[in-house]
Design a protein around this nucleic acid. Structure first.
Lengths: 136, 136
DNA sequence: AAGCAAATCAGAACTATTCGCATTTGTGGG
DNA sequence: CCCACAAATGCGAATAGTTCTGATTTGCTT
């Protein structure tokens, strides 16, 4: 029983081949941020016959189970990353496409305060900074 | 020559019926935030025969001309609003769908600083707070 | 090892948006 | 004021991303 198997069990999900493989791909990918299509290609390149529909279905379940997070940058496809329990926001380089994670406690606090000022309770947020290399 | 006509001329766009009507709809809509489909329906209800493709085309041109702003909330359709030149971010009520605008100079500054710290220059950002009524 | 619910596959369907092309519509020049 | 011509439009088809459907397979329970 591998580590991935245990994670799936813990999440109350049956341990199937597609699920294990997708979890491994997400854990081993270099920059931690992949689209469903990226994962589908990675599966295809390695061996198996996993349909794109399964990739989406599994990712949605993983999200519901708290194993991965889904983000929507601008208008492209959604990107997925392993949820390590450390909340962070993203910065995307408009020239290289590079994704950088960051966390700022002050911004988080201000968000709470702004919601409260308008009579609401914050339940979530999405913050993406679009940036370019300093000198260009 | 109406006000809308002048705005279009100033933006270097030919004054056509679809463009004038779409601009009016956006200016008169109650909460200032509409999807392309909303606008298409509003046109349909009033009278004319404007295709959905034209609605999208015109909105894209308006955006390029700085007349409207497009925003992508989560994974639904894009929403459009008249650009009054006052930058603001959005808060969306997860229960009522209500959209509330806000602006916070401090958050804006922090964003600049964070980008700079990582060696980048901020070129844009997207911040959406998902909220619910305080007592529920 | 058998049974059964859960998961998967392939392909169709769906939503949001854009494209191609034949037709129509504004606009500047005469 | 009218004409010509580029620009804009309408419609339907195309695309991208994602979800659904229904028949088949797979993994957990005993």
């Amino acid at each position: 029983m591998t580590l991935e198997d245990q994670e799936l069990k813990k999440a109350g999900l049956k341990v199937t081949l597609p699920r294990v493989k997708i979890l491994q791909i997400l854990e081993n990918c270099s920059d931690r941020h992949m689209t469903a299509e990226d994962i589908y290609q990675a599966l295809r390149d390695s061996d198996g016959d996993v349909g794109i529909a399964t990739v989406y279905r599994v990712l949605t379940q993983f999200e519901a189970a708290g194993l991965v997070e889904r983000h929507n940058f601008d208008n492209g496809p959604a990107i997925y990353e392993i949820d390590r329990g450390e909340h962070h926001d993203h910065m995307v380089c408009t020239e290289t496409g590079k994704v950088i994670e960051f966390h700022d406690a002050e911004i988080e606090n201000l968000q709470e305060r702004i919601a409260a000022e308008k009579g609401y309770q914050l339940v979530g947020h999405s913050l993406v900074l679009y940036v370019k290399p300093k000198s260009s």
